[in-house]
Amino acid sequence: MIKIMLTAALVLFSVAIAIALYRIISGPSLPDRVVAMDMIVVNLISAVAIISILLETKAFLEVILILGILAFISTIALSKYVERGVIIERKRNR
């Protein structure tokens, strides 16, 4: 029973990733794509969690954490790029 539910959840997450992927491909502006990417990563986090339940292991919890950090950092970086045009600004007093 639980296995079927987990599999179903995995399929639903895949559908969500596919929908977000459509937004990435067709999204008219860069911010659309950034948000879609963020969503894909969040869905991936959930998928990895479900897979680790399916595989009955705790070894992938670090993967989830790393994905969370990466998603955050990359979203911040991309937003900064959208806002300012650069990601790492030079020091002014040089």
């Binding site: 292991t57 993967v63 990466l70 990359s74």
Partner: peptide, 26 residues
Amino acid sequence: VALFFVLFRAPDLALTQLVIETVSVA
């Protein structure tokens, strides 16, 4: 590929692959 590593039960590889892939795409 990172997901493959997850699936084939290689957590260390998956971790490293995720980080490295992000950096190299950047």
